[in-house]
Computed example of a mutant assay.
Amino acid sequence: MRWGRALVVLGLVSLLSACGAEYDPLFIGGAVSKPVIGWRECPGAEHDGIAEVGLYKWARSGTADDPGELLWHIEADEGHVLHRISLGEAPTGFTTRLPLTTELDSGTTYALRTNMTSDELVSGFLTFRPDQLAVGQVVFSSGKGESLKDYESRDNEDFGCFAG
Rank of each mutant, 00 (worst) to 15 (best):
L82S: 02
T92C: 11
G107Y: 01
S86F: 08
P91C: 13
D105R: 09
L104Q: 07
G88S: 13
A76I: 05
V81F: 02
A90W: 06
W72Y: 13
G93Y: 07
T95D: 14
I74A: 12
A76W: 10
L82E: 03
T101V: 07
H73G: 02
A90Q: 06
P91H: 10
L100K: 04
L82M: 04
I85H: 02
A90G: 15
G79P: 08
G107K: 08
E75Y: 04
F94K: 12
H80A: 14
G93H: 08
L104Y: 03
H80Y: 14
T96G: 04
L82I: 00
T102L: 13
D77K: 15
L100Y: 04
T95V: 13
T108K: 06
I85N: 02
P91R: 08
H83C: 03
L100I: 00
D77S: 15
F94Y: 15
A76Y: 04
H80L: 05
A76P: 12
W72G: 01
A76E: 12
S106H: 09
F94Q: 06
T101Q: 11
T96W: 03
L98E: 07
I85L: 07
P99D: 09
E78K: 15
L98G: 00
W72V: 06
I74H: 10
H80I: 03
T102A: 15
T102C: 13
T102R: 10
L87M: 10
D105F: 00
E89V: 00
A76T: 05
E89R: 14
R97H: 03
P91M: 11
E89P: 00
F94N: 10
G88I: 02
L87E: 12
R97L: 10
R97D: 03
T96I: 03
P91A: 15
I74K: 11
T102W: 00
E75A: 13
E75L: 09
